[in-house]
Nucleic acid binder design. Structure first.
Lengths: 165, 165
DNA sequence: CTCAAGTATCTTGACGTCGAGATATGCGAG
DNA sequence: CTCGCATATCTCGACGTCAAGATACTTGAG
């Protein structure tokens, strides 16, 4: 089956036959698919009265395990947002009673963000919903294909995640 | 090499051994990679005094071929933004002299957005820059792997692009 | 012809993000 | 000890996006 990127690449080959646009076959699909996923996630989370950004923060804390707390800095690297954004997110989540801010006992510059019981429940519920939806999207692929795809993507993400880029 | 998603998945398996989180191996990588790509693109375009959103609109028009014009509606489907956003983008690009708005001769509700000569040059220059950068990112993969990856991604994007989703 | 439903675009206000700078604390060389 | 640089977080203003609704035109059934 054809997709928008096939059409996009064909158009470039017609308009700029002098250029090799093959990189777009991979990277434009990544960007467009991410955009579609954002929309789908927004719908899935709406059932749990959560925004995608709230999910990202709550689940990062949930994954940390008991006592479900991380510094704002640790949350930054996991969610790929800037520090001003994270301050804002923590403020709003705290106002909703899903997280609380505690002073870091070992560094007086620092703060720890801790999941409340309510926040933990929300994280658990919405994760289950997300997985259900993602399985539907991946239904197109066999188990072997999913593993193949994950491996190829890892080769692209690893440099970003490891080198301080 | 390990990436952030490997760590994320390992954490979920520890915290929620009851859930099958395998879908995240693919889709979390897609979302995170897209985020890294956004940042990289922003840097690449800065050399041409262009924002990523400006590139998206200008190149959609450039790909259309002579006379480089499309309706706002056609631009929506290519760029995955809402109509209010596109109106705003066209306003700003017109103010910079990169596009111009013309009445649609065949439908008085409609408008055609046309690339100016300056806009066309900018689109061509920045596309070359983008491709150079994308080739560097894809350097991790062999030609065969890139083709494999593109094919797998197409299977995921095609349903979104074809069914009116 | 007429009118209702459909379509294309624009308007508006709320919202989340970014980037640069501010503040406060930690740490190592001398 | 102390000075200067590094680090952790927060503040603030500008900006881009979204969703919902408004406006203007088109189309087809009757």
């Amino acid at each position: 089956m054809e997709d928008e990127v096939d059409r996009l690449v064909a158009a470039w080959r017609r308009e700029r036959p002098d250029l090799d646009v093959e990189p777009l076959e991979v990277l434009s699909r990544v960007s467009r698919l991410a955009r579609h996923l954002d929309r789908a996630r927004r719908l899935a989370f709406a059932e749990h009265q959560l925004e995608p950004w709230e999910f990202d923060v709550l689940t990062a804390l949930r994954r940390a395990g008991t006592p479900y707390q991380l510094s704002p800095g640790q949350l930054l690297t996991q969610t790929l947002v800037t520090s001003g954004t994270m301050t804002n997110r923590i403020d709003r989540l705290a106002k909703k009673g899903l997280v609380e801010r505690l002073p870091d006992p070992s560094d007086r510059r620092g703060v720890l963000v801790r999941l409340t019981d309510t926040g933990r429940d929300r994280a658990d519920q919405s994760l289950a919903g997300l997985l259900t939806q993602e399985r539907a999207i991946l239904g197109e692929l066999s188990q072997a294909q999913r593993a193949e795809l994950a491996g190829l993507l890892r080769q692209l993400t690893a440099p970003f995640d490891n080198i301080p880029g």
